[in-house]
Amino acid sequence: MNKTDEFIPTSLYPAKTKRTISIAFIVVIGFYLVSSITTESFIINFFLKLGNITDLVGRFFPPDWGYVNNVWPKLFETIHMAIIATTIAVIISVPFCLLAAHNITTNKWLYNSMRMILNIIRTIPDIILAVVFVGLFGIGVFSGIIALIIFAVGILVKLMSEIIEAIDMHPSEAIRASGGNTIQTIWYAVVPQILPQFISFSLYVFEINIRASVVLGLVGAGGVGQLINKEINFLNYPAVSTIVLIIFAVVVVIDWISGKLREGLV
């Protein structure tokens, strides 16, 4: 008898897989414990102290419905900021989308530097952009809009350049073969293929911008966030919950409309 005949599998997985999984598991849990201990946050506390927490959250209730009328002007400001910022961002992002797609921009150097700039822009949190622009241009809507534009361009260019990279290049070959120049090739062979997604992503970025512009007000960049900041500083929690509920409703409604529009597109 040779050795292999005696072999009886003792485990469903090879030893190496088992080892990798065990190590990964220990690392994940270990890192979790370290994180939990240093930040003194144990999720279990949430459930243990749930009563306590609900009491504190209870300070937000009932919402102060008398406050509703104070919310509208600032809420509309938020929506206006999002509309203007999205519109400008969409226009600005068009050339950059093309520059950041390797099948359109065949120059490696240009393409790679575009990608790098894009990646850096996308790592900057929107609120830090707002902080900087509020510092530069003062408190108000303008600073918020500029911050939103940069934030939105980062997302839009990333999404769209990926769509452009995935298009069918055969039609553009045909347009070039019939004597079209670069702009004609893009307009006739690239644009029709990406237009529905482009509109769809623009609406998506509008949704994101609504959420983001709520937040920007916290640092003085206009919109409904400014109101939240004010009422929190006054510890006027029922008013805060009114604002939050209205924002919630508006976000849901806008997401729904934009979702419906996007469904109709593709």
């Binding site: 069918d168 055969h170 039609p171 070959e173 045909a174 006739y188 062979a189 029709p192 293929q193 237009l195 529905p196």
Partner: peptide, 8 residues
């Protein structure tokens, strides 16, 4: 593959 713009 004809190379038409399919959506046009």
């Amino acid at each position: 593959s004809y190379n038409l713009v399919k959506r046009s």
